[in-house]
Amino acid sequence: MSSLNDNTATGSVLGQSVAYADRYDPGLLFPIPRAPNRAALGIGETLPFHGVDVWNAYELSWLDPRGKPEVAIAEFRVPANSPAIIESKSFKLYLNSFNRERLQDAAALRAHLVCDLSAASGADVGVVLTVPERFANASIGEPDGESIDAQALDFDDYGPPDADLLRRSDEATDVCESLVSNLLKSNCPVTGQPDWASVQIRYEGARIDRAGLLRYLVSFREHAEFHEHCVERIFMDLMRRCAPTALSVYARYTRRGGLDINPWRSTLPGNPANLRGARQ
Protein backbone atom coordinates (compact mmCIF):
# COMPACT_ATOMS: atom_id res chain seq x y z
CA MET A 1 0.00 0.00 0.00
CA SER A 2 1.37 3.41 -0.93
CA SER A 3 2.62 5.88 1.67
CA LEU A 4 0.56 9.00 2.41
CA ASN A 5 3.72 11.07 2.57
CA ASP A 6 4.56 11.02 -1.13
CA ASN A 7 1.30 10.26 -2.88
CA THR A 8 0.05 12.51 -5.65
CA ALA A 9 -2.47 11.78 -8.37
CA THR A 10 0.22 11.91 -11.04
CA GLY A 11 2.12 9.14 -9.25
CA SER A 12 -0.86 6.78 -9.30
CA VAL A 13 -2.08 4.26 -11.87
CA LEU A 14 -4.73 6.75 -12.97
CA GLY A 15 -4.52 7.26 -16.72
CA GLN A 16 -1.98 4.46 -17.19
CA SER A 17 -2.33 1.11 -18.93
CA VAL A 18 -1.98 -1.58 -16.26
CA ALA A 19 -2.43 -5.33 -16.01
CA TYR A 20 -5.20 -6.62 -13.76
CA ALA A 21 -4.00 -8.60 -10.76
CA ASP A 22 -5.14 -12.23 -10.71
CA ARG A 23 -4.94 -12.55 -6.92
CA TYR A 24 -5.98 -10.46 -3.94
CA ASP A 25 -3.59 -7.53 -3.47
CA PRO A 26 -4.30 -4.73 -0.95
CA GLY A 27 -1.08 -3.05 -2.08
CA LEU A 28 -2.95 -1.82 -5.16
CA LEU A 29 -4.80 0.80 -3.11
CA PHE A 30 -3.39 4.30 -3.67
CA PRO A 31 -4.28 6.91 -1.02
CA ILE A 32 -4.09 10.62 -1.86
CA PRO A 33 -3.88 13.07 1.07
CA ARG A 34 -6.83 15.43 1.42
CA ALA A 35 -4.83 18.18 3.15
CA PRO A 36 -3.20 19.91 0.13
CA ASN A 37 -6.49 20.42 -1.71
CA ARG A 38 -8.20 21.52 1.48
CA ALA A 39 -5.42 24.00 2.26
CA ALA A 40 -6.05 25.62 -1.12
CA LEU A 41 -9.67 26.17 -0.01
CA GLY A 42 -8.62 27.62 3.35
CA ILE A 43 -9.59 24.47 5.25
CA GLY A 44 -7.30 23.57 8.14
CA GLU A 45 -7.06 20.56 10.44
CA THR A 46 -10.33 21.46 12.17
CA LEU A 47 -12.94 20.77 9.50
CA PRO A 48 -15.79 23.27 9.03
CA PHE A 49 -18.16 20.44 8.10
CA HIS A 50 -19.27 16.91 8.84
CA GLY A 51 -19.25 14.51 5.94
CA VAL A 52 -18.78 11.18 4.26
CA ASP A 53 -17.89 9.88 0.82
CA VAL A 54 -20.37 7.17 -0.21
CA TRP A 55 -18.96 4.78 -2.82
CA ASN A 56 -20.94 2.07 -4.61
CA ALA A 57 -19.26 -0.84 -6.37
CA TYR A 58 -21.30 -2.79 -8.93
CA GLU A 59 -18.51 -5.01 -10.27
CA LEU A 60 -17.47 -7.12 -7.29
CA SER A 61 -16.83 -10.86 -7.50
CA TRP A 62 -14.83 -13.57 -5.75
CA LEU A 63 -14.70 -17.39 -5.59
CA ASP A 64 -16.28 -19.64 -2.98
CA PRO A 65 -14.16 -22.44 -1.43
CA ARG A 66 -15.02 -24.74 -4.36
CA GLY A 67 -14.07 -22.15 -6.97
CA LYS A 68 -17.57 -21.04 -7.99
CA PRO A 69 -17.85 -17.27 -8.63
CA GLU A 70 -19.93 -15.16 -6.27
CA VAL A 71 -21.08 -11.56 -6.81
CA ALA A 72 -22.31 -8.69 -4.67
CA ILE A 73 -22.92 -4.94 -4.71
CA ALA A 74 -20.86 -3.05 -2.15
CA GLU A 75 -21.43 0.26 -0.37
CA PHE A 76 -18.44 1.96 1.21
CA ARG A 77 -18.61 4.98 3.52
CA VAL A 78 -15.32 6.85 3.93
CA PRO A 79 -15.47 9.54 6.65
CA ALA A 80 -14.65 13.06 5.49
CA ASN A 81 -12.21 13.38 8.38
CA SER A 82 -10.04 10.56 7.01
CA PRO A 83 -6.53 11.78 6.08
CA ALA A 84 -6.83 10.44 2.53
CA ILE A 85 -9.13 9.68 -0.33
CA ILE A 86 -8.52 6.50 -2.33
CA GLU A 87 -7.69 7.05 -5.98
CA SER A 88 -10.54 5.51 -7.96
CA LYS A 89 -8.62 3.43 -10.52
CA SER A 90 -6.52 1.86 -7.77
CA PHE A 91 -9.79 1.09 -5.97
CA LYS A 92 -11.12 -0.68 -9.08
CA LEU A 93 -7.91 -2.67 -9.51
CA TYR A 94 -8.02 -3.67 -5.85
CA LEU A 95 -11.63 -4.86 -6.07
CA ASN A 96 -10.85 -6.81 -9.24
CA SER A 97 -7.98 -8.55 -7.47
CA PHE A 98 -10.63 -10.63 -5.65
CA ASN A 99 -11.86 -12.15 -8.92
CA ARG A 100 -9.81 -15.33 -8.52
CA GLU A 101 -9.52 -15.31 -4.75
CA ARG A 102 -11.21 -18.15 -2.85
CA LEU A 103 -12.97 -16.95 0.28
CA GLN A 104 -15.13 -18.73 2.81
CA ASP A 105 -18.12 -16.42 2.38
CA ALA A 106 -19.23 -12.81 1.95
CA ALA A 107 -18.37 -12.10 5.59
CA ALA A 108 -14.73 -13.02 4.90
CA LEU A 109 -14.70 -10.67 1.92
CA ARG A 110 -16.18 -7.86 3.99
CA ALA A 111 -13.50 -8.33 6.66
CA HIS A 112 -10.78 -7.84 4.05
CA LEU A 113 -12.52 -4.76 2.63
CA VAL A 114 -12.98 -3.09 6.02
CA CYS A 115 -9.37 -3.73 7.06
CA ASP A 116 -7.73 -2.68 3.78
CA LEU A 117 -9.83 0.41 3.05
CA SER A 118 -9.59 1.67 6.62
CA ALA A 119 -5.80 1.30 6.50
CA ALA A 120 -5.57 3.11 3.14
CA SER A 121 -7.84 6.04 4.08
CA GLY A 122 -6.64 6.34 7.68
CA ALA A 123 -10.15 6.07 9.19
CA ASP A 124 -12.77 3.41 9.84
CA VAL A 125 -14.58 2.68 6.57
CA GLY A 126 -18.09 1.27 6.68
CA VAL A 127 -18.81 -1.60 4.30
CA VAL A 128 -22.21 -3.10 3.41
CA LEU A 129 -22.51 -5.98 0.92
CA THR A 130 -25.75 -6.69 -0.93
CA VAL A 131 -25.94 -10.26 -2.20
CA PRO A 132 -28.01 -11.32 -5.26
CA GLU A 133 -30.93 -12.50 -3.12
CA ARG A 134 -31.46 -8.86 -2.14
CA PHE A 135 -30.87 -7.21 -5.52
CA ALA A 136 -34.62 -6.91 -6.11
CA ASN A 137 -34.88 -4.68 -3.05
CA ALA A 138 -32.67 -2.02 -4.62
CA SER A 139 -34.53 1.11 -5.67
CA ILE A 140 -33.86 4.16 -7.84
CA GLY A 141 -34.75 7.72 -6.94
CA GLU A 142 -33.63 11.28 -7.49
CA PRO A 143 -32.30 13.77 -4.92
CA ASP A 144 -35.16 15.43 -3.10
CA GLY A 145 -35.64 19.12 -3.85
CA GLU A 146 -36.72 21.75 -6.36
CA SER A 147 -34.81 21.75 -9.64
CA ILE A 148 -33.13 25.02 -10.66
CA ASP A 149 -32.23 23.78 -14.16
CA ALA A 150 -35.24 25.14 -16.11
CA GLN A 151 -34.22 28.78 -15.72
CA ALA A 152 -33.96 30.62 -19.06
CA LEU A 153 -30.43 31.98 -18.75
CA ASP A 154 -27.53 32.74 -21.07
CA PHE A 155 -24.22 31.03 -20.26
CA ASP A 156 -20.68 31.76 -21.37
CA ASP A 157 -18.64 30.89 -18.26
CA TYR A 158 -17.50 27.25 -18.06
CA GLY A 159 -14.57 27.59 -15.73
CA PRO A 160 -12.82 28.04 -13.48
CA PRO A 161 -15.51 28.00 -10.77
CA ASP A 162 -16.51 31.56 -9.98
CA ALA A 163 -17.68 32.08 -6.40
CA ASP A 164 -18.53 35.71 -7.23
CA LEU A 165 -21.60 34.37 -9.05
CA LEU A 166 -23.09 33.36 -5.70
CA ARG A 167 -25.16 35.88 -3.80
CA ARG A 168 -28.14 36.22 -1.51
CA SER A 169 -31.51 37.10 -2.93
CA ASP A 170 -32.94 40.54 -2.23
CA GLU A 171 -35.81 38.92 -0.32
CA ALA A 172 -35.70 39.64 3.41
CA THR A 173 -37.40 36.43 4.58
CA ASP A 174 -35.24 33.46 5.61
CA VAL A 175 -36.04 30.10 4.05
CA CYS A 176 -35.41 26.39 4.54
CA GLU A 177 -35.21 24.69 1.16
CA SER A 178 -33.59 21.97 -0.92
CA LEU A 179 -32.37 22.81 -4.43
CA VAL A 180 -31.25 20.31 -7.06
CA SER A 181 -29.33 20.53 -10.31
CA ASN A 182 -28.41 17.78 -12.77
CA LEU A 183 -25.98 20.05 -14.60
CA LEU A 184 -22.84 19.64 -12.52
CA LYS A 185 -19.86 18.47 -14.57
CA SER A 186 -16.15 18.58 -13.81
CA ASN A 187 -13.11 16.78 -15.18
CA CYS A 188 -10.63 14.28 -13.76
CA PRO A 189 -7.49 16.28 -12.83
CA VAL A 190 -5.21 13.60 -14.30
CA THR A 191 -6.95 12.09 -17.34
CA GLY A 192 -9.24 14.97 -18.28
CA GLN A 193 -12.21 12.57 -18.51
CA PRO A 194 -15.60 14.12 -17.71
CA ASP A 195 -17.28 13.53 -14.36
CA TRP A 196 -21.07 14.00 -14.37
CA ALA A 197 -23.23 14.55 -11.30
CA SER A 198 -26.51 15.66 -9.81
CA VAL A 199 -26.12 17.91 -6.79
CA GLN A 200 -28.48 18.65 -3.92
CA ILE A 201 -28.07 21.79 -1.81
CA ARG A 202 -30.08 21.99 1.40
CA TYR A 203 -29.83 25.16 3.44
CA GLU A 204 -31.46 27.47 5.96
CA GLY A 205 -31.05 31.23 6.03
CA ALA A 206 -31.29 34.08 3.55
CA ARG A 207 -32.58 32.89 0.18
CA ILE A 208 -29.80 32.07 -2.31
CA ASP A 209 -30.18 33.66 -5.74
CA ARG A 210 -31.01 30.72 -8.02
CA ALA A 211 -29.73 32.24 -11.26
CA GLY A 212 -26.35 32.88 -9.67
CA LEU A 213 -26.29 29.41 -8.13
CA LEU A 214 -26.94 27.71 -11.46
CA ARG A 215 -24.33 29.83 -13.24
CA TYR A 216 -21.88 28.95 -10.47
CA LEU A 217 -22.50 25.20 -10.82
CA VAL A 218 -22.14 25.40 -14.61
CA SER A 219 -18.80 27.20 -14.13
CA PHE A 220 -17.36 23.84 -12.95
CA ARG A 221 -17.84 22.43 -16.47
CA GLU A 222 -14.17 22.62 -17.51
CA HIS A 223 -12.74 22.52 -13.99
CA ALA A 224 -10.31 19.70 -13.11
CA GLU A 225 -10.73 18.43 -9.56
CA PHE A 226 -11.62 15.21 -7.78
CA HIS A 227 -15.26 14.65 -6.81
CA GLU A 228 -14.64 15.10 -3.08
CA HIS A 229 -12.82 18.39 -3.54
CA CYS A 230 -15.48 19.79 -5.91
CA VAL A 231 -18.12 19.26 -3.23
CA GLU A 232 -15.94 20.84 -0.57
CA ARG A 233 -15.32 23.84 -2.85
CA ILE A 234 -19.08 24.25 -3.39
CA PHE A 235 -19.70 24.00 0.35
CA MET A 236 -17.02 26.55 1.25
CA ASP A 237 -18.03 29.01 -1.47
CA LEU A 238 -21.67 28.90 -0.40
CA MET A 239 -20.78 29.40 3.25
CA ARG A 240 -18.54 32.35 2.50
CA ARG A 241 -20.71 34.09 -0.08
CA CYS A 242 -24.22 33.37 1.24
CA ALA A 243 -23.64 32.62 4.96
CA PRO A 244 -26.51 30.17 5.50
CA THR A 245 -27.21 29.15 9.08
CA ALA A 246 -27.23 25.49 8.00
CA LEU A 247 -25.94 23.87 4.81
CA SER A 248 -25.60 20.43 3.24
CA VAL A 249 -24.11 19.68 -0.20
CA TYR A 250 -24.55 16.18 -1.65
CA ALA A 251 -23.32 15.23 -5.13
CA ARG A 252 -24.31 11.98 -6.82
CA TYR A 253 -21.74 11.24 -9.54
CA THR A 254 -22.29 8.77 -12.36
CA ARG A 255 -20.26 5.61 -12.24
CA ARG A 256 -17.07 4.81 -14.10
CA GLY A 257 -15.58 1.31 -14.17
CA GLY A 258 -18.35 0.02 -11.92
CA LEU A 259 -17.78 2.64 -9.18
CA ASP A 260 -19.67 5.80 -8.31
CA ILE A 261 -18.57 8.36 -5.71
CA ASN A 262 -21.05 10.48 -3.78
CA PRO A 263 -19.55 13.06 -1.39
CA TRP A 264 -21.72 14.70 1.29
CA ARG A 265 -20.67 17.72 3.39
CA SER A 266 -22.85 19.38 6.01
CA THR A 267 -22.86 21.79 8.94
CA LEU A 268 -24.96 19.17 10.72
CA PRO A 269 -23.87 15.67 11.74
CA GLY A 270 -25.59 12.79 10.02
CA ASN A 271 -25.31 10.01 7.49
CA PRO A 272 -27.03 10.59 4.14
CA ALA A 273 -29.24 8.09 2.39
CA ASN A 274 -27.66 6.22 -0.50
CA LEU A 275 -30.41 6.24 -3.11
CA ARG A 276 -29.14 5.40 -6.58
CA GLY A 277 -30.11 7.94 -9.23
CA ALA A 278 -31.40 7.15 -12.71
CA ARG A 279 -28.06 8.13 -14.26
CA GLN A 280 -26.13 5.93 -11.87
Rank of each mutant, 00 (worst) to 15 (best):
N56W: 08
E59G: 02
E59P: 02
L60D: 05
W62M: 03
L63I: 10
D64Q: 10
P65R: 05
P65Q: 08
P65S: 07
R66Q: 15
R66W: 13
G67N: 10
G67K: 08
K68Q: 09
K68G: 05
K68Y: 13
K68M: 13
P69C: 13
E70R: 13
E70A: 06
E70M: 11
E70Q: 13
A72F: 02
I73H: 13
I73Y: 13
I73Q: 08
A74C: 14
E75V: 12
F76G: 07
R77K: 14
R77I: 04
V78H: 03
P79Q: 09
P79V: 02
P79N: 01
P79R: 03
A80V: 07
N81V: 01
N81M: 01
P83N: 05
I85N: 02
I85M: 12
I85Q: 00
I85T: 10
I86L: 14
E87C: 06
S88L: 04
S90Y: 02
F91T: 00
K92C: 05
Y94C: 03
Y94K: 01
Y94H: 05
Y94D: 03
L95T: 01
L95E: 05
L95Q: 02
N96H: 15
N96P: 02
S97G: 09
F98R: 01
F98N: 03
N99C: 12
R100M: 12
R100C: 04
E101W: 04
L103E: 05
R110E: 12
A111I: 07
A111W: 07
H112Q: 12
L113H: 08
C115Y: 14
C115F: 11
D116A: 00
S118K: 12
S118T: 14
A119D: 12
A119T: 11
A119M: 13
A119F: 06
G122E: 07
A123T: 08
D124S: 11
D124C: 06
G126R: 02
G126A: 06
V128M: 12
V128K: 12
L129F: 10
L129M: 12
T130L: 02
T130A: 15
V131N: 10
P132H: 06
P132Q: 06
E133Y: 06
E133D: 13
R134I: 09
R134S: 14
A136D: 15
N137Q: 08
A138W: 09
A138V: 14
S139A: 12
G141H: 03
G141E: 07
E142S: 11
P143V: 05
E146N: 08
E146W: 07
E146Y: 05
S147T: 15
S147D: 11
I148D: 06
I148R: 00
A150N: 09
Q151E: 13
F155R: 07
F155M: 09
D156N: 09
D156M: 05
D156F: 10
D157I: 04
Y158E: 10
G159M: 04
D162P: 02
D162W: 04
A163K: 03
D164S: 15
L165N: 05
L165T: 06
